[in-house]
Design a protein around this nucleic acid. Structure first.
Lengths: 187, 187, 187, 187
DNA sequence: AATGAATGAGAATTCATTCAT
DNA sequence: AATGAATGAATTCTCATTCAT
């Protein structure tokens, strides 16, 4: 799994890169763009990351870690009901894809990058594995192994599809509607 | 809507480009690659298309037209049952994303490009509108307007999400399972 | 062996590169330098050569071809004596390493590059094989197989060593003295 | 002449650099490579050497000193015969160019660098002067001034040429054969 | 002495596009 | 319609060097 917390100087670069990658995608963001947004020079980036791809790996890992600690974690909070768990998970997730300040909708850079750079496939699979496990864990409170499994798979697909549609139609209700539906499956 | 059938010389280029874009994505396919695969020179491409983006538009339009004529059309075939319609629609769709000869899984280049090149957004919206309309039309045989609407939205999201997962996990059962589920909604 | 004559547009680039590589060595000559000396832009070089290394290969091949046609060839001219052959071979060779106009001494770029870029090793071996064969062919007029072989090996080593010393001491007499000696071996 | 023994901390850097320069050449060895091989940081190198070139100077000086103390010195050992002197000199020299442990053949980094970085010319001339003097000193036991002079020049050229050929053909017999020959000149 | 972050100049390479022929 | 040479701007990456701490 190997998800380390980024060190001090790197952190700033990773966060700035994340912003740019989300706004402009991997291919449309140059190392120069990133350097500029960090207030350093292009060459200095290579002090921390050995290549643009390496940097992207760290960015995806960072997002993964964030999801583990801030989103998926709600699935394992045994003090609340299954429905509350899923609700919290969805709410936390919405915070990521919808920027309340700017009103902008962001995509799942991990997915979008993996579709275009096959090297990112393995790392994004881990993300989905964790996502799937969290959702399944919640459904298992109400359903048996098999149904929970199927519901989780279906929910993950639906959520990802709706993030895509939300981006394309610039309409976040695709996501919120989907979230409502997958929560309703616990009733 | 403005979907024209590509003319003779263009057609070959569009089809070759489609292949390459699906295998390597828009950004990883150069005009040189395309020219080579057509047996012509880079410069000659500009005889037919005024830019790489223009070419991509034509490719997406071509795919859109194909879906209209070969996939979505099944929704409007009044000689068969709703279930049969959806079944045929899904089967035809699977042919596109799964290459039986090579065993390779392809993505929806329209979507994947739109996520990365915002200019492609409007054209890909039209595609989804048609997709959504076809599915909704089928569900309306069994459900009322509102439910059909919701089911269609949900189904489109789920299908797109599962295409993504299928690509990332290189496992086409994500798609076939989803297809089974959305067909089952007619029972 | 695969030594082709360079085509029209390439030829100019190859010859200009040869000049620069000889004056400044492979590593100290940039693609920009080469482009400038050809009156074209850096990027245009890649129309003809897929990399700097590829260009260097063509340059070494060009030199190899030159040596075959203008230097080693004298060894196989059956109308003159062995001594005359070797004399002509040496004279032709001196023309390459000593630029009468500028008074400059050049090295064997093939050798110098091969010592620094291992990829050039195979091609420079071919050069030496031809050099060795030519010299041996001459010595065989006077000596038996074994002696001719040994004399050729020794002569090639001595010539190359003296080219090096000539460069380092900027004194072409190292080369001319060596040439005299290897010719004297035919007396 | 100015050949000082390197001080404590420097010594380690010089020796590590020597290894790298021999394996990868001057241009293909970065200050980072050197620092890493010494277990220190790039910046720290500048504590000892004011530039990469300066470091290379020290490396060449170090090699020069080694040759004086361990190789050329045999020429002046008056307790053994001329032939034994040359034999010892050659044997000691072979130890440098042929690494018995790894089986690798190394070049004369001084020469190879001088061919590519003219600034190293003066220092490498000193090396050759000493080499030449040692060989000449030996030949003078058997020959007069003039012949000894010529034989020494020839021998040095032949040795250097054969080191080159040995490197290019990865065959140390070029060197050993040459050594045999120059020793035989004392018979 | 040593660190490690940053510099800044420059390198090779890519690529969509243009255009005279 | 097609060629093929050339453009020019951008991009990733390298690396010797500096310097505050």
């Amino acid at each position: 799994m190997n998800i380390e917390k980024p060190k001090k100087g790197e952190q700033a670069i990773i966060i700035n890169s994340l912003k740019l990658f989300r706004q402009q995608s991997f291919h449309n963001t140059s190392m120069e763009d990133i350097a500029k947004s960090c207030g350093i020079l292009k060459g200095s980036l290579y002090h921390y990351f050995k290549s643009k791809e390496d940097l992207m790996f760290r960015v995806i890992s960072f997002v993964h870690l964030y999801f583990k600690e801030e989103v998926f974690i709600h699935a394992y909070n045994d003090k609340i009901s299954a429905k509350q768990k899923l609700k919290k998970l969805c709410d936390a997730s919405e915070l990521v894809f919808f920027d309340k300040k700017t009103g902008k909708l962001y995509g799942n850079i991990g997915v979008e990058s993996a579709l275009v750079v096959p090297e990112f496939n393995p790392i994004i699979r881990e993300f989905f594995q964790d996502f799937f496990n969290a959702v399944k864990h919640i459904y298992k409170e109400k359903y048996g192994e098999k149904i929970a499994n199927e519901l989780a798979e279906r929910s993950v697909a639906e959520v990802e599809g709706s993030i895509m549609l939300a981006r394309i139609f610039n309409d976040k209700t695709y996501i919120t509607n989907t979230h409502k539906r997958i929560i309703a499956r616990l009733e």
